[in-house]
Design a protein around this nucleic acid. Sequence first.
DNA 1: TCGGCATATCGTCTGTCTACGATAGGCACG
DNA 2: CGTGCCTATCGTAGACAGACGATATGCCGA
Lengths: 119, 119
Amino acid sequence: MPSALRSVRKATCQPTDPSHAGPDLRPVEGPAADEELAALTKAVGHPARVQILRLLVRREACVCGDIVDELPLAQSTVSQHLKVLKEAGLIRGDIDGPRVCYCVEPHALRRLRALVASL
Amino acid sequence: MPSALRSVRKATCQPTDPSHAGPDLRPVEGPAADEELAALTKAVGHPARVQILRLLVRREACVCGDIVDELPLAQSTVSQHLKVLKEAGLIRGDIDGPRVCYCVEPHALRRLRALVASL
DNA sequence: TCGGCATATCGTCTGTCTACGATAGGCACG
DNA sequence: CGTGCCTATCGTAGACAGACGATATGCCGA
C-alpha cells in the first residue's frame, strides 16, 4: 500500500501560546539584528522549507509523515529541512508517541516579520 | 592612501517612485508565491547582503565604492553580493559615469514584506 | 589618445547545501 | 519480547555558494 494513501493523523501539539509573550524587545537594527535576519531568511530561503512552513501554518500542526506525503522528496530530505527550520527557531517538534508533531513558533514568525519590516 | 579615507560620493540615482505603482496584485500564496518568497529570502539570507540592504535604505542610494569601504570584504566579493541582490530584483544599479549607483527597489521590499506577512 | 580610476567578470579553491539510500533508535501493539 | 512503524542520523555524491586575486571593461580627464 503506497504511503500516499495514508490518512492525515490528528495533531497533538499546539503552537506556543502567544498571549504570554509581550512584544519582542530586541532591537530590529544593528549588527546582531542583521545576523539574526540573515539566519532567519536563510532558513526560509528554500522552496521546500517555504512549503513546509505554509503547511504548518495552514494546518496549525502536522505530523512529520504527513509533511513527507505532501512533498515530492525523500523522507530523509524532509527530515533535514525540518531540522534546518527547527535550528532557526521557526518550528518546534513535539514527540507524540512514535511520531513527531511539528508546529510553527509564532513568536519567531513575528520576529521575522518585524526584522523584514525594518528594512 | 587607504581606501578608507575616501570621501562618500554624492548619490545620483533615486529609488523608483512608488506612487506610480499600486498595490501588488500577485497572490501571496500558491506555488508561484512560494518560489518567489524562497528566492527573495535566499537573496537576503547572508549577513553581508543584509548589511548592504541596510546601507542602501539608510542612505537611500550609494555608490558601489562606498559599499566596499563599509564592508570588510574584497571589492570582487561585494560586487558578487550586489549581483545577487540585483538578480533577485531587490536593488537597482544605475550607471553614473565611471561609477555605479545602487539603490533599493521599494516595490520589491514591499513584496517581500507582503510574502513574509502571509506566513 | 592615453592613463587611471571604478566596477564587473573570470578562474579557482574551499566549504556548505541538497538530495538520496541505508541504517539506527524509539515506541506501540500483539 | 519480538515485530513493525515512524523518524532521525549517517555516509556519500553532486551542485552550489562564498571568498579571493587577477584580469577585463568602460568612462572620464589630462
